[in-house]
Design a binder for these strands. Sequence first.
DNA 1: GTCCCTGCAAATCCTTTGCACTCCT
DNA 2: AGGAGTGCAAAGGATTTGCAGGGAC
Lengths: 131, 131
Amino acid sequence: MKTLKYSRQRESIKACLMGRKDHPTADALYTSIREQFPNISLGTVYRNLNLLVELGEIRKLSCGDGTDHFDYDTSPHYHYVCKKCGKILDLDMEISGSLEAAARECQKGTVEEHTVFFYGTCCNCLQEESH
Amino acid sequence: MKTLKYSRQRESIKACLMGRKDHPTADALYTSIREQFPNISLGTVYRNLNLLVELGEIRKLSCGDGTDHFDYDTSPHYHYVCKKCGKILDLDMEISGSLEAAARECQKGTVEEHTVFFYGTCCNCLQEESH
DNA sequence: GTCCCTGCAAATCCTTTGCACTCCT
DNA sequence: AGGAGTGCAAAGGATTTGCAGGGAC
């Protein structure tokens, strides 16, 4: 177990991620943080995000668009992904009991976590389409 | 709508994917297919896989390991991902009714599909660990 | 003959890494 | 001082793409 030292950059990354309702990619976060730390490097952003994921302070989301997104909310919840604009939204629906039950009974091995993504066209994009 | 022409390579890719119980990556498929078509190129494999996904004949799985996997089975089902060995297994559990219901009531936009991944350590890896 | 499909290689995109230097503790 | 953290740039891995030639119709 290695000792963790304070770093302004890491705090800024956490704060920045917490302040956002979307689920930014490392690069989006990098762009935001550059306003405060013009010299921060993308490598540092990646390193810290991965560190925070390991520590369990944030979650990494792989929704299938080829880039990883990050979520400050580590509580169990599902996600909605818009296929048009790529936005990821939190779903505030109940965690499915039957899915949890299935996880417990899974014959394939242990189940430590599970992810649920819904895919479709979000309300914003639907409106724009109707023009 | 562009016309589709027959291609031996595409048929071989489909056949190869159908014949496998695992959920191979493009590269794994490429390696397999090379036994039949020593000259096939990785680009062709990618192009055809993407084409088949667009046609709805196969599914692309992004489980978060950084590489895409492909599944010949397009019927709704969930997946189990082993964090140790990376294997993806089909779960033959029932589709959760409550999850389906939630999808229908989703306020964020349309829901065309959804994916569920369970993550843990598979039975094989658990056994090996106990040695 | 036309146009899709292929092999090849280069290009692109995202992410990780090596290194010298800086900043916590 | 010691070692974790940083910026930079190069490396790495996965996927896409441009192009000239080949094959289906």
